[in-house]
Design a protein around this nucleic acid. Structure first.
Lengths: 246, 246
DNA sequence: TGGTCCGTTTGATCTGGGTCAAGGCTCTGG
DNA sequence: CCAGAGCCTTGACCCAGATCAAACGGACCA
């Protein structure tokens, strides 16, 4: 609780490293961040922001998983992003939210009031710079996901999602990057379907198929073991291992 | 040729307004931009950059259309972005390209050498700021497209693409935002299929269907008339008119 | 004037994933 | 200990869009 989780600098007493914000901040800047910061918790399933709402804060996910979702008038939905701990939420310089944000699991957010955050950004170029980098990362991720949505089969989609979650998990689990990987699915079948542009029945069937074929092992419905990440990546149609394995 | 196309400031003698770069630059900054600027032309079909290549420039499309494409090892491709005149290419602060960029029609690019551009960015906060805004726009567009790819039917996909092209065209055609719209398709059926996650046969069939149903009129294979934009938007499943019509 | 090349259209057929429907687990609360 | 609610799985069937195949049409060239 008092030992840093990461070796990076953190803003004030915040238990996570804000990737976007304070990786390179000095003491004064951290203090300024602390002054405009507050925490907020959401229960699993709760909305955090609705598309079009005025957002008066930006922030980072501290724990739990949040999702970004687009919705059509007739109710069809597509998840367009997953927010894992340390991911940034919000659009400096923008009034409203562009999509619905909801808590997929219980979520703790570290928020910064938007106006003062933007002012701080103005006079702190490296924060603006870091924010640009981070937005470029998100753009890359979004465009990679467009390939998944547009061209991959249901089985490849599932494998891609599992690979992403495993990889993200690994970055939070020191020394985790081996061939065998174990993690918990933070999403229901329905949420996976929303992310993958599938129905929950197809998600369920394909997970069963991957299990039958020995690509994954399941303990209960959520706890996943991948005996060999390379095989999973092949199933994802993604031999370029995304920089994940040596 | 000597009269400005746009009423905005432009960098030096460049015939387009660089949305990202010089909308708010002063004379000194424009001069600095001019000093590191050069033009380059590409024929339709030519590659501009390959994914993974080191990019030593950033720039804007001056005329023509370029595409961003993701490719899988087995040859499946997904177009992840369209670059129309005034769109920005390149990733300040990044070494390599993340996707293939190719000229879809003949293209003229206005390029800035990357190193000096980044230096200029460092000491010119409003350029960095504008770049962030623009990247956020691209991110929004990418995420909107994820909904198209993941959840829309073939007919809706085609209608969405036509609506986007019409809208983009309108921004370049003063006074063009009426209900009736006329434009040329800058893409082959195959390129449309790549963008929409379909096959070219399906694209062709759905275009024929939209024509049969009177949503669009075709003169040759490329010249499109939309008698009533609202009907097209409905077909796109996108009643929120994207800020296009009053 | 007639190839031939390339993008496009159209037809016939097949199939992956959607839809509808019926249970099966597992946790919670009475 | 049972009932109910949420998820999840599995089966049967269907359809939108993929695949395979043929032919069209306009631009270019000999």
């Amino acid at each position: 609780m008092n030992a840093p989780i990461m070796s990076q600098s953190r803003c004030g007493d915040c238990p996570i490293r804000h990737r976007a914000v304070c990786a390179r901040c000095n003491a004064d800047e951290l203090e300024a961040l602390d002054a405009i910061k507050y925490y907020r918790t959401y229960e699993a399933g709760q909305p955090i922001i609705w598309s079009g709402d005025v957002m008066n804060f930006v922030g980072s996910v501290v724990s739990g998983i949040a999702s970004l979702t687009q919705t059509m008038e007739d109710g069809r939905t597509q998840m367009v992003g997953l927010l894992l701990p340390s991911d940034f939420v919000g659009r400096p310089g923008r009034e409203g939210a562009a999509y619905d944000v909801a808590a997929t699991t219980d979520v703790v957010m570290c928020c910064f009031r938007k106006k003062p955050f933007e002012e701080l950004m103005e006079r702190t170029p490296h924060i603006a710079h870091r924010l640009l980098e981070m937005t470029l990362d998100e753009l890359d991720a979004a465009r990679e996901w467009m390939l998944v949505l547009g061209r991959k089969t249901a089985r490849e989609k599932i494998a891609s999602l599992l690979a992403i979650i495993a990889r993200r998990d690994a970055t939070l689990t020191p020394g985790g990057a081996t061939n065998r990987m174990v993690f918990d699915l933070p999403l229901t079948r329905e949420a996976m379907a929303d992310y993958l542009g599938l129905t929950l029945e197809t998600v369920s069937r394909q997970i069963s198929a991957l299990k039958r074929d020995g690509i994954i092992e399941l303990e209960g419905k959520r706890h996943v073991t991948v005996p060999d990440m390379r095989r999973l990546m092949e199933e994802a149609g993604d031999d370029s291992d995304g920089g994940f394995l040596g």
